[in-house]
Amino acid sequence: DHDVVPEDKFQETLHLKEKEGCPQAFHALLSWLLTQDSTAILDFWRVLFKDYNLERYGRLQPILDSFPKDVDLSQPRKGRKPPAVPKALVPPPRLPTKRKASEEARAAAPAALTPRGTASPGSQLKAKPPKKPESSAEQQRLPLGNGIQTMSASVQRAVAMSSGDVPGARGAVEGILIQQVFESGGSKKCIQVGGEFYTPSKFEDSGSGKNKARSSSGPKPLVRAKGAQGAAPGGGEARLGQQGSVPAPLALPSDPQLHQKNEDECAVCRDGGELICCDGCPRAFHLACLSPPLREIPSGTWRCSSCLQATVQEVQPRAEEPRPQEPPVETPLPPGLRSAGEEVRGPPGEPLAGMDTTLVYKHLPAPPSAAPLPGLDSSALHPLLCVGPEGQQNLAPGARCGVCGDGTDVLRCTHCAAAFHWRCHFPAGTSRPGTGLRCRSCSGDVTPAPVEGVLAPSPARLAPGPAKDDTASHEPALHRDDLESLLSEHTFDGILQWAIQSMARPAAPFPS
């Protein structure tokens, strides 16, 4: 592969990997390779389809078979030569091979799209000592099968071997295949498990690692696999990028399955594409389908809103127990993405979901129960707010008499603000006073009005108090039968009158 990737590009890729991570280095090298001529790309395919690569990765054979028959990708048995050289000459001794072996032994695996480039050397060096003999053996194999790289107009793939297949390693990572398949204008990513390549439709969760975000852009890794992070704060999961590491605690105790298979379609829109997988259930989501939507993949363990709600429900009964003089119970939860139609709101002032922060849900004790107040519409209280300059209440639009249902020339009671006709409430011909108009209920007259088809109010509507207090003497005590009587009149003013009279009014101040 030294004929494909020059030394300066190799060093530039290593520097970019240390600065921005393996995914960015892979993407940059792939983009550079696509700008080369067809001879360089053909050399790339020839390096990929060597015999030892085909033996190690069985899924490469179907890719090789898909090439046109007129494309010669065979390799000479006596060494490598550029395709432009007409004579089959043995190339001179390859010093770059020693360079590659020494550099890969030092860096474990470079971040390139060629056999030198995919593992994360920093994480491997940190986690190597417990498994040094086995990992050293794996390093000797890295130059042979560490990076199976493929690129063409139909298929483009980048393979990364790992030393996680050490025997006896619980939940060992089998390997990473960062794979971009450009077929019919689409893009897919796969993962390699035990020599087999699994596409998103049959993606397997190998051991402790999972394909957290099938994305090839942005600074985030394709698999949430930063070796420096180790395990999740809650004892979460091992990262795919942690090559040759000792077994780590796999999943939280509440995880239903340690080796679950995540779905390959969004649980909201039932469509495929780039998904984020939940650590607590097999569901996966688009970032845009979450509520609120996320802009980037959160670091650490992530769970959907259903799993978060289940966790909150487990903690909430203990938080609601009476604990005198104790601060509110704080339950730190990872930043969760909410699927459509589901929402768990945190306290005000918290950062938005999706940031690399930890939301704190506070379970406050329930407030003391209070008697429910009568629910009145805002339009129902409008007549009470229509007060004239002299303190006389004006008529609201649409006000109707509670007896006849007519809204023409209605009066407004100064005591309960109900609309009424003087002739309907006082049919006996009582003279109307000039000021202080009161309806039949507030004036103490319980004589029913002779209106055909309208039920008369119940005599129990009024329960006047002592006459010594004029204001308190007109406080009506309405009961269920009074409400039914008012409802039978089918008037809004009657219902409003009952609601206003049912509310307690402050006692009249004593004259000074």
Rank of each mutant, 00 (worst) to 15 (best):
H421M: 01
D264Q: 14
P448H: 12
P335F: 15
E452A: 04
H474R: 07
R303H: 07
M503N: 04
D409G: 11
Y361C: 05
N394D: 11
A248N: 04
L359S: 14
P511A: 13
S339V: 14
R423D: 08
R461E: 04
T358F: 14
C416F: 03
P450T: 15
S305D: 11
E390P: 07
C413V: 00
A472L: 08
S299I: 08
C404I: 02
F426R: 04
Q393R: 06
T331M: 15
G444Y: 06
S488Q: 04
G349I: 06
P253A: 09
V246S: 13
L359Q: 12
P324T: 11
L462H: 13
C269S: 06
L455N: 09
G494C: 06
A310D: 12
G354I: 15
W422S: 06
K468F: 12
S512T: 10
A340E: 13
W498N: 00
P249N: 00
P293T: 09
D470C: 08
L333V: 10
C269D: 05
H421E: 02
T430L: 11
A396R: 08
E489F: 03
V410L: 05
L373G: 11
S339H: 12
T408W: 15
Q316R: 09
S488R: 03
E484Q: 02
S291H: 05
E475S: 02
F510N: 05
S502I: 03
A449G: 14
D279T: 09
G346E: 10
A507D: 05
T331N: 05
E321D: 13
L250G: 07
S305Y: 11
S441C: 07
F492T: 00
Q243W: 08
L385P: 09
D493F: 04
V454T: 15
H421N: 01
A353Q: 06
V446F: 10
L384P: 07
D481C: 03
A477W: 06
D445C: 09
I495D: 03
S512Y: 14
P459K: 05
V268I: 08
A499K: 01
L376H: 05
C277S: 07
P506G: 15
A319M: 12
S306C: 10
A449K: 11
G388S: 06
L250I: 08
T430V: 15
E452N: 06
H415I: 05
A460Q: 08
E452P: 13
T301R: 11
T311A: 08
D481K: 01
F420G: 03
T311V: 08
D445F: 07
A460K: 07
V268K: 11
K362M: 15
P327D: 07
E321C: 12
S443D: 04
G341L: 14
P433C: 15
S473Q: 09
L308D: 08
H259M: 15
Q393C: 14
P256D: 00
Q393Y: 15
L359R: 11
L385T: 07
